[in-house]
Design a protein around this nucleic acid. Sequence first.
DNA 1: ATTCCCATGTAATTAGTTACATGATTCG
DNA 2: CGAATCATGTAACTAATTACATGGGAAT
Lengths: 180, 180
Amino acid sequence: MALEHAILVSLAEKTASGYDLARRFDASIGHFWKASHQQIYKVLGRMESDKWVEAHLVEQSGRPDKKVYAITGEGRDELLRWSSTPTPIEPTRSEIAVKVRGLPFGDREAVLSDVRTRREAHVAQLAYYEASAAKHYPDPSAIGEDELGAYLVLRAGFMQEQTGIAWCDEILQAFGADER
Amino acid sequence: MALEHAILVSLAEKTASGYDLARRFDASIGHFWKASHQQIYKVLGRMESDKWVEAHLVEQSGRPDKKVYAITGEGRDELLRWSSTPTPIEPTRSEIAVKVRGLPFGDREAVLSDVRTRREAHVAQLAYYEASAAKHYPDPSAIGEDELGAYLVLRAGFMQEQTGIAWCDEILQAFGADER
DNA sequence: ATTCCCATGTAATTAGTTACATGATTCG
DNA sequence: CGAATCATGTAACTAATTACATGGGAAT
């Protein structure tokens, strides 16, 4: 129910084609809301019939034509309405936590090696967030109101990766598998 | 694809009826893998035909009969096999992050009040994990190998709630809305 | 009387994933 | 010559949610 709203936020910031949106959902927005291009095209169609967005065709030379979507007044109304409804807490689903919990019934070495891999992914993602923050917000005290939301979700990502690393370290330490 | 395995882990620890499992997925296991009773009954049926679990009927007086499920040898094999496959990283989906990102297009006060509510939920959950740790693992240095997995996922919950609280505080502080 | 606990399911719908499909251009 | 980028979709399937359905016993 919320991919629609994630798309609305993205289009409120800047008009985009389905393809553009798919790329945004691979990067910035995608850090906290993933979506495939197939899903995006499907939802965009629904949103167009709901009049939340409107498309106009842009002909291009040398590359395929594209449909550029823009948010409508009704779309903005919907964003405002949605922003003031209470947000349900998403149920957590962590397959690696199930594996850790079930360690006595599993392949210990394989799970620990999985944890090591996960730790590396967290480290890489943390570095990415760090670079992104340094590039876009070199002076955190100078962040304007309009950028604050984007900055804060970057912070969320940053903090989550740190926590992920710390958890992996606890696991590896607990099993005496933290030396490399 | 992994509810099956969460159920296998739970049944490897102790046999249970669908109803019992549903309660476990409301509590312990449910902290990192949510599932409704409808879904559990459906999956249990599939798992029975796959011979991963077997059921025997327990007649009760004064309350409805129940089907008690136990993991089979094949189920244990599957658990072991699954534990040594690489775990994909779950895509994050945080509706509140979308709202924070879209703050310039939303109802600021409503979103901040939503963040305050979310903070309280994190605090309550943290207290729950704290109490649970104090009860089950009063002496962390005395935790045995067989309990270690369960303890570590409790730690994950604990750390995640702490991070959640810290993020909420950053948001409220950034918008100068942190006084109550 | 009403609500909660025990106990098990089916049916309908929505959301999301995976696979399939096409075709031009640009870069190495 | 092959891979990547740009660009848009359909079709089939799986997973999950929501709603519906039943019924006895115990506690307030």
